[in-house]
Design a protein around this nucleic acid. Structure first.
Lengths: 242, 242
DNA sequence: TTATGTGAAAGCGTTCACAGCC
DNA sequence: GGCTGTGAACGCTTTCACATAA
């Protein structure tokens, strides 16, 4: 029912949104998603350099450490500002600070995780979230044998307490790691509670009203692509052999 | 040392590879990675339709079920061949067969997982691999307390047995879910053992010789992008309010 | 001279719009 | 008439190449 409601709203909100989009000012210049995704990689490389007491780095060296093209690195960094010195390179400490600021280490986004099966538990334990400025502040699962269990000191709470958890933590970002058939219902409830960003690990297409951001992670997808190339490589090999 | 060896080979092999690439025939026309990644999504939607005894489907309906644009769906399917009928739509059973064939359900790729912490365990339990034609045939971890433990009947084996596991299973695809500092060494050993496709969950840039395919999955990355948009949306909102 | 910052070009993926076939 | 299949347009991302600044 909630799903139906939100779905009906979609058309309306889309119209509103399209109208608004032209008027909205851009206080921060838009940084491409692809760049945003790479910033933490750069940060990790810079941290290693800092540990090795290296104070200055050229785009070529940093790019290699991050596994990208030097031009790409420079373009990415140029979206943040002009933090390098021509003829010299980038100051490791300063660049670290600037990227860290952008990545939002300072922000400490509160995040809740719904569904604590193997994947959800892995995510709750995942240190990569913390290092990127996220803090897991709520764990939700309907299974009685899981409720009360603690992960890093945080207790898993029943699905019925979802509302209270979202309200008390102020989380605007949620991770869904439930089975496929539960995901849409959870998403609907999250949206009703004011969550505006959802990271979906369940193999389902979530329908949400406009204004809510959903990103999907499919663990099998990359494996699929690898297998396709593997298959092609073998076919080519045999084909060339004839 | 293995890492150094393989790294030195890279330049040589790249030259060879570039020379060859023009001569290689393309037995199968190249399907974009983005399309390959979506095929399983279509398959899932088709399976649901088949269960509901629906025998024919239009691109519009199938696209909605898969959460994509109808034109995208048609273009994706057109890479596989002309399996639809103009004025009618697609035959669910036949299309299911064709996509299944391409996706390689028939193939049952053997895959090994190295590193069985929370994430590796989640992956070993993940049903999405199986449903896409992958079979987890080997589990490797150096921790004595994990060796011998069984997941779905498959025992975790010590890192020292890696060679034997790869050889006996014939796995050409491996998943690395180790801590960052162990990943490169594992990758080097895998490459030496003939593994040609690696899915890397560790937050490190892996260096491998040309001819080996690596794809990286970063669980924090998508969350990062969500947070960025969340931040921007709030900034815009406040900006518009003034 | 050296290495950044950035317009311009190239590449890739998505969406449009309609020709072509049922 | 209806819906697929696909060239063309569009938009996003990557890479090149060089003007610019230390």
């Amino acid at each position: 029912m909630t799903a139906a409601e939100t779905r009906d709203d979609t058309v309306l909100r889309q119209a509103q949104d399209t109208a608004l989009r032209h008027l909205e000012p851009s206080p921060v210049k838009g940084i491409p998603d692809a760049t945003i995704a790479r910033l933490p990689v750069y940060l990790r490389a810079l941290n290693q350099l800092a540990e090795a007491r290296i104070s200055t780095v050229r785009s070529e060296a940093l790019a290699e450490a991050a596994g990208v093209n030097p031009a790409q690195l420079r373009k990415d960094l140029s979206y943040l500002g002009s933090y390098g010195r021509r003829g010299v390179g980038y100051d490791v400490g300063y660049l670290r600070l600037q990227i860290g600021r952008q990545v939002g280490s300072a922000h400490d986004w509160p995040v809740i995780i719904v569904g604590l099966g193997n994947l959800g538990t892995a995510l709750a334990n995942y240190s990569g979230f913390y290092s990127r400025g996220f803090q897991v502040v709520g764990l939700i699962d309907p299974a009685p044998e899981l409720v009360g269990k603690r992960i890093h000191g945080l207790a898993i709470r029943d699905l019925s307490e979802l509302e209270e958890v979202v309200a008390s933590t102020g989380a605007a970002i949620a991770v869904i790691a439930t089975p496929a058939d539960a995901a849409q219902a959870v998403a609907d409830r999250l949206v009703d509670l004011g969550v505006t960003s959802i990271l979906n690990f369940a193999p389902t297409v979530l329908v949400v009203p406009d204004g809510v951001n959903v990103r999907k992670v499919d663990l099998g997808q990359e494996l699929q692509i690898l297998a396709y190339h593997e298959q092609r490589a073998r076919a080519d090999y045999r084909g060339a052999g004839r």
